[in-house]
């Protein structure tokens, strides 16, 4: 689908802060399932936004503000064309070896036991991944939120979590099965309410590559998933990380608007 995306993040502070530093992963990187026709990231008050690539190949903007500062508004907007590629993320700039994505997840014993039980004797890796996604979709209730994720063991015990929490549990389950897995953050283009950001997991299969699995929704990413960044865990792929100096409380509001979603030309031709 072709969509005009506009995301606004407004961070306001309970009292003026001395300074603020931010790292933003709000720029989608094109791959086989995504054309980025136009993209813009801006910040208000105006500051130098330095664009770089992080250790995973994500596009990162960083900026710093000197205070006193009451509010920062971040805008990320552009025109993208997504294609349903059955969740396969091919054509990205892969900078890290698979071993990195096999790092055992902390406190994941319960999840590992659950994964082993659900999978029984299934041998085929792709089938195992689909089974895991379905089992966790069944077990964990999706409660949209943009809050920082809790530890996976807590989420698993609680039986409910945000998309990013469920994605972390799925990553832990995949790694427990010795399958390279990583965390992906992104946006949903179908106008779902509740949270601006979405998240899912990607797992690696020989001969195919990285494939996305979304246990919050229960299916592999489609053309409604706009991929922003990936990492070993949430914090390496977080859309925004910020720190302020001073004791102010930060309140963050986000607005995501998707418009002019017309059929992409290549779909019409098919």
């Amino acid at each position: 689908m072709r969509a005009r995306v506009s995301l606004q993040i407004e961070a306001s502070y309970s009292e003026p802060t001395r300074s603020a530093n931010q790292v933003l992963r709000l720029t989608p990187r094109p791959f086989d399932g995504l054309h980025v026709l136009d993209w813009f990231v801006g910040v208000e008050p105006v500051a130098t936004l330095r664009r770089s690539e992080d250790g995973f190949g994500n596009i990162v903007h960083s900026c710093s503000h000197a205070g006193p500062l009451e509010k920062i508004v971040i805008t990320a907007e552009g025109l993208v064309e997504t294609q349903d590629v059955a969740g396969v993320a091919r054509g990205l700039n892969e900078k890290q070896p698979l071993d990195l994505f096999l790092r055992p997840h902390e406190d994941a014993e319960e999840i590992a036991a659950f994964a082993a039980k659900e999978l029984g004797g299934e041998k085929d890796r792709l089938s195992r991944l689909h089974l895991l996604m379905a089992a966790l979709h069944e077990k964990l209730n999706h409660a949209p939120s943009d809050a920082a994720p809790r530890p996976v063991a807590d989420v698993f015990a609680d039986g409910e979590g945000s998309a990013r929490e469920i994605a972390q549990v799925l990553v832990a389950a995949m790694r427990a099965q010795d399958i390279p897995a990583r965390f992906v953050s992104g946006l949903l283009l179908d106008g779902a309410e509740g949270a601006a950001f979405h998240a899912w997991a990607e797992a690696y299969i020989d001969d195919i590559g990285w494939i996305g699995f979304d246990a919050a929704l229960g299916f592999c990413p489609r053309d409604t998933h706009l991929r922003l960044a990936h990492g070993v865990g949430f914090f390496g792929a977080a859309p925004r990380r910020a720190a302020i100096s001073g004791y102010a409380e930060e309140k963050v509001e986000k607005r995501l608007t998707i418009s002019a979603a017309r059929q992409a030309s290549w779909q019409i031709q098919q």
């Binding site: 250790g55 070896p97 071993d99 070993v232």
Partner: peptide, 14 residues
């Protein structure tokens, strides 16, 4: 795997 599965390997530095 000894290097990359080690928490002390920092992908940020790659």
């Amino acid at each position: 795997d000894l290097i990359f599965r080690n928490e002390c390997y920092r992908p940020e530095m790659q």
